[in-house]
Design a protein around this nucleic acid. Structure first.
Lengths: 135, 135
DNA sequence: CGCTCACATTTGCACAAGCGAATATATCAC
DNA sequence: GTGATATATTCGCTTGTGCAAATGTGAGCG
């Protein structure tokens, strides 16, 4: 299971950035569409894509295409030690205040009666798709 | 026990450097004198001091002065999550090949019948002090 | 006191990383 | 095919980080 070539630095460099930590926190256990990240962070889209690519290279997220949309979800890194540490990191993220605020904001965007224009047709995160009002 | 202001980035930035990981690995459970790091890595002394200062700012090591010598040891970061993660990191370090080689090299330097000039009078790491031959 | 030793800090430079703006790619609608 | 939408990548630019060399600090010795 453990992969010899996976380096500790690769993991820690990926985790040593606030934006990337916030992205991981927003994913939680769900798949999330890129456009939601852009809305929650109120930032430009290339910035999000760049950080997601970084996380993917470190084996911390995986991507799935659905038509025009890309869904990202947290993945398990190939090294056993890295996987254990990453689990602890995600537990930590769940308890951090700023991270909680981000997730609340994501929830509001998904369930808003009049979602922002950019999200009109965007597929919602899996856990919010069922009960959220469709446009 | 958990300290609110301790940031995740502080921890991961400290861990995202090979030299700092090697330093942590060399300490293991002991106090180690700065001069040993310099010898094991065969590098200049300011480089070691800078990285040790970085680790100290991140709460990952503590220092103790003994006359002219400074001894560094691994410390427990003030945040509970950080402490758990740091424990896993140290377990990982114990299994990494390059890190093992560093520790073997430290052991050789301590127990050598004719230690390098720079270490003639240096205090040895605690676990090696008892059985190692004195000069 | 001055001198040496062990370590810390500063300085200047090269390189890596994050940024926004612009551009490229890929899919869908027509 | 064209055009629109969603995402990825590239391009300068700025900032941060690690480095070696030089300098500073603090303790012990004579």
């Amino acid at each position: 299971m453990a992969m010899k070539t996976y380096s500790m630095e690769l993991l820690f460099k990926a985790l040593a950035d606030r934006t990337r930590l916030r992205l991981l926190s927003l994913m939680g256990e769900d798949e999330v569409c890129v456009c939601y990240f852009v809305e929650v962070f109120k930032t430009n889209q290339p910035k999000i894509s760049r950080h997601l690519a970084y996380l993917r290279r470190a084996g911390l997220v995986a991507a799935r295409r659905e038509g025009k949309w890309m869904h990202y979800r947290v993945a398990t890194p190939p090294d056993a030690h890295a996987a254990r540490i990453f689990m602890e990191v995600r537990a930590w993220l769940r308890e951090e205040r700023e991270m909680q605020r981000d997730r609340e904001r994501l929830q509001q965007l998904c369930c808003a009666p009049r979602p922002p224009v950019q999200l009109k047709r965007a597929p919602r995160p899996a856990s919010l798709a069922a009960d959220a009002p469709r446009v």
